[in-house]
Design a protein around this nucleic acid. Structure first.
Lengths: 230, 230
DNA sequence: GCGTGTCACGTACGCTGTACGTACGTCAAT
DNA sequence: ATTGACGTACGTACAGCGTACGTGACACGC
């Protein structure tokens, strides 16, 4: 029996196996051993199917929200959960971000994140802004990570990049080794840490302003110059 | 006379006017008053054409790098320059980010950015990491901004979003007004400021470590709780 | 038996990207 | 002046795309 979820999962598998360009209604139908038009009994259009794919992938984000952990650590955990899914479905992730969807699929993560940020001491408007900024960073990072290769090979093939004139671009030329290689884990954790610390500073300033006190006021984890962690 | 740049600019105009889905070789040829296959004398494939579009848009980023300004301000200026182009070619921006291109188009911005970060006191590795984090944030923000609507209407039509069960998602429900509306300028500047301040803190720590001194050491602009600026 | 629905399916239409062959202008060498 | 090579524009053709539409098989309440 054909149904919507079978179609969606077939689409996800096909995307991961052969890339988003290989996706066509005929291809998916063949994958399921059915006629093309049968799909349209369950999915109104290809665009809607891709939306459903995005929704499906997004809903797979697993959250192990540990209320006992410090809010900064919970922020890290949520960001990593998001990233883990993106790495598990790299090519579908491109579909997710390419396509703005107004569904309630990503609502639970949002709820959790807002709870965490409220706990950190931000009021509603600040929490939303923080969340938006954080999502922007995570999405941007994932775009770089999963977009760097069609599959998710560890690193770009190597000397695919052309020569650079050291006279025109001295710094690019000098920093070539750092620019060419990229440890995605380390890179992500670096930015994550920077953001978390910036948020902690802001939270401390908030708390300080609220209690009318001076400046420190134990805002939690005062920027430990922290390196990447894994 | 047909040539590559005429084709590319026609493609950009078409994308902006009717969206990326409307782009086809036949459509572009018709736009130029030319046969379809004539395009292939100047462009090897549609994919290559879209790459060229991305490259073209990217190369339009205008930099008025003012060496007298503080490095934090220069970071802001560069980020805004990037964003301005994305707003000028919103739909083409989507093809830029959807498509990973290994060309030298975005090399000048990279060079400028690295110079700025070096001036801030970061060594090569840190400068590259900072740059990557910054690009991730900017790209993620732009994805949200330009993806929110096909055109760049100020805000989502309005009540397009479905109802949310306040019992299941209390915070989402409570913060609905903040979540629905979004002042993109303000939002962008908020995250930008947070990032710049986080970088400044890091730069100060760096400088402190290098001089062996304590902690302050005039790293520039010590986190002024700053609001958005325009 | 008989409408009424749902579901799988086949056919068909107007698109798409592009491989291939052709025709015409210009320029270099003869 | 003639010839040949070459670059450019073009038309045709093919395989594949999304999907509108009609058809037939089956299950149901009356």
């Amino acid at each position: 029996m054909l149904n919507r979820t079978r179609i969606v999962t077939a689409a996800v598998e096909l995307i991961e196996r052969e890339g988003a360009d290989a996706v066509s209604m005929r291809r998916i139908a063949a994958e399921l051993g059915v006629g093309v038009m049968s799909l349209y009994n369950h999915v109104p259009s290809k665009a809607a199917l891709l939306d459903a794919v995005a929704e499906d992938v997004l809903s797979r984000i697993g959250f192990t929200d540990d209320p006992s952990a410090h809010w900064t650590e919970r922020v890290r955990i949520q960001a990593r959960a998001f990233r883990r899914i993106a790495h598990h479905y790299p090519r579908s992730t491109m579909v997710v971000v390419s396509r703005q969807l107004n569904s309630t699929a990503g609502l639970l993560p949002v709820e959790r994140a807002l709870a965490t940020l409220r706990e950190a001491g931000f009021d509603g408007g600040e929490a939303v802004r923080m969340l938006r900024m954080f999502i922007a960073y995570v999405v941007g990072s994932l775009l770089r990570e999963v977009g760097v290769t069609p599959t998710f090979a560890p690193v770009r093939a190597g000397a695919a990049v052309a020569e650079v004139d050291p006279a025109l671009f001295p710094l690019v030329s000098e920093l070539r080794p750092q620019l060419d290689s990229c440890d995605h884990d380390e890179e992500f954790e670096f930015g994550l840490e920077l953001l978390v610390q910036a948020m902690a500073v802001r939270a401390a300033a908030r708390a300080g302003a609220r209690t009318g006190g001076g400046e420190g006021e134990r805002g939690g984890e005062r920027a430990g110059r922290g390196g990447a962690r894994q």
